[in-house]
Amino acid sequence: MNGFEVKRKDLGDVSCLYIKGFLDAHTAPVFEEELQKLVDEKRFKIVVNFKDLCYISSAGLGVFMGFIEDIRENKGDIKLTNMTPKVFKVFDLLGFPSLYEIYDNEEEAIKKYNLAE
């Protein structure tokens, strides 16, 4: 089917990543590379929009875990939005909602960054 795609949009100092398709052991390195680019550019305020993501496995969850410490140490965060119920269930099963802020939409996540300034 459609594999995996990631698109980026920078809005001021916040970067939004739009992920689409399947995030599994095959596609996780593509997403990892995109997050690494943001870290290299010192853009630590990140929003990941899950609207078009239809599947996630632990390899995909692992990408978030691999970056979160470094990003938070640099006063940034990875905020998650627009998660489908199927993908949310996997996050929830592992207790990830206690570690990551999850919003209904991108605007709410961006507002949260702006309020914190």
Partner: peptide, 22 residues
């Protein structure tokens, strides 16, 4: 232990946990 796992920001090793849970 997922509480410890998340608190320590560990990476990897979740596959078997998911299999056993699901």
């Amino acid at each position: 232990d997922m509480m410890e796992y998340l608190a320590e920001l560990r990476v990897g090793g979740l596959g078997i946990y998911l299999m056993k849970t699901l």
